[in-house]
Amino acid sequence: MHKVLIVDDDVDLTAMLCRYLRHESFDAHAVHSGETGVAEALTGQYSIVVMDIMMPGLPGTEALRRIRATSRIPVLMLTARGDNVDRIVGLDMGADDYVPKPCTPGELVARIRAILRRVEGRDLPSSPGPKVLQAGGLVLWPGTRRAGWQGQDLELTGTEFSLLEVLARHAGQLVSKQEISQQAFGKPLAPYDRRIDVHISSIRQKLGQRSDGQSWIQSVRGRGYQLLED
């Protein structure tokens, strides 16, 4: 089992990510300061470090510099700003990849697996399910987060991909919004949270309408959503 170190001062976020990573067969541990992150990363116990750039005290860039002084452990950098300067600085200092916040747990796991495959030169256990997921005219490649619809590339955001992947895995079945939130985001759906509805609306527009004028994603009020296969 690969051990993941998460270094981020956001306690709620790291707790959620640890739960999701454990569900995906990783051993995850979180610390909340750059100083502690450097010390943990250099113990040799971890396969990869996921580290926030913006932290009080010792920032992620300086923590990365200290790690790189003595270790080549893979490091995936996170930032809330999505600033290209942060990305360039992090990669120049030896980061293996960079993910802007907010990102979905599914996207983060896919990036972690991709880095570890490159480092180790072999495949890791994939998420439950096939490497290619197909439901009618929809084809998803979870490992690379790529999507196709009726023979054409389908451009999705990371969140849209995660939501559509959940529906595709249960194609033809009604999936509650609570289940969608747990499987796509790794956390329960908060009261009055409308993000799923907003993103589903965007996905519907990208898929277009069926020949009968109905949406490919059906909703049952108060219950959830269902992806139709034909």
Rank of each mutant, 00 (worst) to 15 (best):
R221W: 14
R68H: 02
E229F: 05
A147W: 02
M77R: 06
P130I: 10
S162R: 09
S33R: 00
E229M: 11
E160C: 06
E155D: 14
T70I: 11
G143F: 13
R169G: 09
G121F: 04
D8K: 01
S127K: 15
E165A: 13
E229S: 14
R72I: 05
L124W: 06
L154R: 09
E165D: 06
T36L: 10
I200E: 12
G34D: 03
S162W: 12
S71E: 04
R210K: 03
I88E: 14
E107Q: 13
A114H: 10
E62N: 12
G143N: 15
R118S: 11
H170E: 11
G148H: 09
M16P: 13
K101Q: 07
V175E: 06
G158R: 12
R65Y: 04
V109A: 08
S71I: 02
I53N: 07
A114G: 06
L133N: 13
S47N: 10
R113Q: 08
H23R: 15
L156V: 06
F26K: 04
P188D: 04
L164W: 05
Q205V: 15
P188H: 02
G158S: 12
R146V: 12
P191I: 10
T79S: 06
P128R: 01
R146Y: 10
R87P: 14
E160M: 04
A15H: 14
V4E: 01
I180K: 11
P100N: 10
D83S: 11
V139A: 15
L167V: 04
E40P: 00
Y46C: 03
T144M: 12
E107P: 06
S211A: 11
G129A: 02
G44P: 00
D86G: 08
H32A: 07
P142N: 01
K187G: 12
Q178D: 14
V4N: 01
M93P: 15
R111N: 12
P125W: 09
T157K: 14
V11Y: 14
S176H: 06
I73Y: 00
P142L: 09
Q182G: 13
E179S: 08
L21T: 03
L91K: 04
R210S: 00
T157R: 10
A30K: 04
L227G: 04
E107M: 06
G37W: 01
G136Q: 05
A135G: 00
A28C: 03
P130H: 03
E160R: 12
D153C: 07
M55H: 03
L124I: 14
V31Q: 01
G60N: 08
K3S: 02
T43C: 00
V175I: 15
T14R: 08
L76C: 02
V198F: 13
G129D: 03
